[in-house]
Design a protein around this nucleic acid. Structure first.
Lengths: 148, 148
DNA sequence: TATTGTTATACTCTATAACTATA
DNA sequence: TATAGTTATAGAGTATAACAATA
């Protein structure tokens, strides 16, 4: 009776799946002593330093929210604010060695948990899915100008 | 040069996609004067009244967090706490007519925005994707005991 | 004893508005 | 003037611990 095996539309499935991912992300963050927001911030900095305004755009937050977020991880020694050589108004938020370590550990933990969910599937399916999902992302980027 | 057309793993793609969904959800919630958390709460109540402890499990929150969340939407007239007939400790959180209206509007807005992203795809792809994603969800439910 | 829900407390997260400094 | 970032403020979200009432 509680076995509701309904057929969901693709859009609904995407919503549910996003909840699963958030769930996994929250659990992993917590195990590393981070809030999900802090973990997300650190992940954005892995490729290299980012300015405050760019972080705000990437994370979809107001500038002042980013100030607070960066303050807290800076107080914990995970990032530093390095002043921008070309623009004296700006600063480059940069991961410390500890920050890098935490970011990479969190990332790989999230990935391995998600892989567990995906591993049972035939690789033909996963390959095709990855490419279809990627085209959805491309569609989103094109329609909003948001770089993910 | 900024055209980074990297190939992402399925797990990474799922993470990005989840960010898109959260984004859409946050925008729609805001247009309805709700926080994302409030909107998610209302959506959970659409099928029918739910007890506080069950909400905590569904939303992955502590009981006390749910108390505050329900307090705020109750103060706005979107839900009521009805006392449980069978268990005098418990209460059934129930949508008001206004709450139902907001929940349904938010839901359909999220769906139509996501449909825009998905519409360009061949229906053979979307059908197959929906079924593969559904099996990922089933795998998650089975491995965690979480009903999504 | 275990469970349901609330209260008290302390943070974190977030937006708005006003501000400083630089471009 | 416009942009980069901060501060001040207020409210929302969250967890922990302690509690009351019921099962």
């Amino acid at each position: 009776m509680t076995e509701t095996t309904e057929t969901l539309s693709l859009a609904e499935t995407l919503v549910r799946l996003s909840q699963v991912v958030q769930h996994v992300f929250a659990e992993v963050s917590r195990e590393h002593g981070l809030t999900p927001q802090q973990a997300q911030l650190l992940c954005r900095l892995v490729p290299g330093p980012v300015r405050m305004a760019d972080l705000a755009r990437m994370l979809n937050l107001e500038k002042s929210s980013v100030t607070g977020l960066v303050d807290r991880v800076e107080n914990r020694g995970l990032v530093t604010r390095a002043q921008d050589a070309n623009d004296r108004r700006a600063c480059q938020v940069t991961l410390t060695p500890l920050g890098i370590k935490l970011a990479l550990h969190s990332h790989s933990n999230v990935m391995s948990r998600l892989d567990l969910l995906v591993n049972g599937l035939p690789s033909a399916d996963t390959d095709q899915m990855a490419s279809v999902l990627a085209s959805i992302l491309a569609q989103y980027s094109a329609s909003t100008g948001h770089r993910m």
